[in-house]
Design a protein around this nucleic acid. Structure first.
Lengths: 339, 339
DNA sequence: CTGTTAGCGCCTTCAC
DNA sequence: GTGAAGGCGCTAACAG
């Protein structure tokens, strides 16, 4: 007597083979669209598949093919629309190419997210795209060296061995922002960064200082918000404005922090943009609805996500770039009421 | 001569066993924290694991244990903060319990998302939590019957066999909204729904009509926005307001549609809340920043996510509720400037 | 306490 | 065109 299919689970390839009166192998051929299957057999098998509601088990398949057709995507906070939009873009690209995307959030407490990434690997992803945020370049380098699959980072331009880096041209962006503020007659510009994305903040911060010193304004720095979110931006901006010597402009690390600054100005009775102009980064859609609407550096999240996906595919085919590779994107300044 | 480890991949349990001079099984015991391992052996194995950077392959493990310690989470658009927040809540709950969350977006074009869900299953998840949105109750019922794992739906209160449903009390919410608007002196209330979430819209819509007819106001319905997002809400609200016979209040299906209505009023030169009061659903954080800030029905996304996770675990242990089960949550009205 | 055997569901290789 | 072996990496069940 054959083994009883006691399992409550789903039908396997063997169930289909039995139902169709063929061997497992033939079913496998049908499922993988192998050409050498007799049309009649194919039909029989397909009917059996439909009857039983069979779906091949990707894990079992991945075990033997060493390929899961799955990429991982990681960011520290998908609730930030910039990350969310990029995630969406990757999802769309993945679907188009028959890939599946496994999404996860980096856990700040878990070895700065490296633990989360390791877990992603145990899932058998063929590649990983991530916003480094809390991870340093050397974290990324180490991860890329040991993970055994391609790695793409989004949002920071760094030449890390074996890693493709996709990021906006921070210098161009800084120039756009600063030129605009100077043109608006602003003279004392505050830079509102955060402490937990050290290297991205650093790139952006350096670019802004540079642009400001090239202009006619004076820069004042604040790197004191925790997470780059609305609430933290509000707190940081408040202490900053209370302390600051008549700041007349505030640049937020991202739109959510800039929104926090908007609230801070409201709290303090400062008019935007007359008293204080505010500019953010990212170009999240909600920025159009604030009071006043937020001027921002728009990033092409979808385009960058698409590029990330393609880079992953390309690495799979031709191997990763040994000395690393940086793909730079042009920023765009969207001027709205807050400046 | 033994097989050459040509694989570029990661070390396997055999590599560790060789390195530590024990059998695979012993390594497996160490990795799974089996108690019956000699302390000295354990140390040797752990050292080998560290040296080789070994991480167990979850797919291989899941294949034999029939358990992946992974749940799937699906919603139609993670970029909507309500879905995003719930996703975040599940991620946190999962991590706390040693589970992993695989997140995916329902594809509208792909059999109304059922195809996406099937793909999720092939990944070997132990359970699925989802926002039904575009899926009907009978879609869900059919899916639950064939998926072989627990299913939890969030955001619609329906008694579907074998499914736990977690949702807000729509009648209570509708009463809160309508009582508030009537109290504000509003008499002609427009209901701005959408066409692609048929059953959730239906529940909410019916509850609102009922509440309005109990009050002293008159309801006017519009179910004409496509996706419930800002842009579509703006378009729908515009035609609605242009056509409508002096509407003095607008209830959006969710906050993003209500935000669209805010923009529509601005376009048409209508003052909010004097000419038209606007109320949304969900309580997304960005609602605090609009002009004016948005009155909204707050949903406890995190709490509901947590309940969803626990329900999944409970189904795994005690089986799913045969006739279905509905967990109802109390809504809360957050009054802000838009009403 | 540790090793051996068997097999999870599937695909690759090689027969026929 | 189809089937039979073998093994992907891992753990359950049984030795000892």
């Amino acid at each position: 007597m054959k083994r009883m299919p006691v399992r409550a689970g789903r039908p396997t390839i063997i169930d289909v083979a039995t139902e169709a009166g063929v061997s497992r192998q033939t079913v496998s051929r049908v499922v993988t669209n192998h050409p050498r299957v007799a049309p009649a057999t194919r039909v029989r098998v397909e009917k059996a598949i439909a009857t039983l509601g069979y779906r091949p088990n990707r894990m079992a398949r991945a075990l033997v093919t060493q390929t899961s057709l799955t990429f991982g995507f990681a960011a520290i906070d998908m609730r930030d629309p910039h990350f969310g939009d990029t995630c969406f873009g990757m999802q769309v690209a993945a679907r188009e190419h028959g890939y599946y995307l496994v999404v996860t959030e980096l856990d700040f407490d878990d070895d700065r997210g490296l633990g989360t990434l390791e877990t992603l690997l145990t899932l058998g992803v063929d590649g990983v795209a991530l916003f480094p945020s809390i991870l340093s370049d050397s974290d990324i380098e180490q991860f890329a060296a040991s993970c055994g699959c391609p790695v793409v980072m989004i949002g920071r331009a760094s030449k890390v061995p074996n890693v493709v880096s996709i990021a906006m041209d921070e210098n161009a962006a800084a120039e756009l922002v600063v030129d605009h503020l100077v043109e608006r007659g602003k003279k004392r510009i505050g830079i509102l960064m955060n402490e937990i994305f050290p290297e991205v903040v650093h790139q952006r911060y350096v670019a802004l200082r540079e642009a400001i010193s090239n202009g006619t304004a004076v820069a004042t720095a604040a790197v004191e918000a925790g997470y780059p979110r609305i609430a933290q931006g509000r707190i940081a901006a408040t202490t900053f404005l209370q302390r600051g010597p008549d700041l007349d402009a505030l640049i937020g690390f991202n739109d959510t922090m800039a929104m926090g600054a908007l609230l801070a100005c409201d709290d303090l009775g400062l008019r935007v943009p007359q008293d204080v102009a505010i500019v953010g980064y990212d170009g999240i859609p909600f920025g159009a609805l604030t009071n006043p609407p937020l001027t921002t550096i728009v990033q092409d999240s979808i385009g960058m996500a698409d590029a990330a996906f393609r880079s992953l595919l390309s690495c799979l085919e031709h191997g990763p770039p040994p000395e690393g590779k940086v793909l730079l994107w042009e920023p765009e300044l969207l001027i709205r009421g807050s400046s």
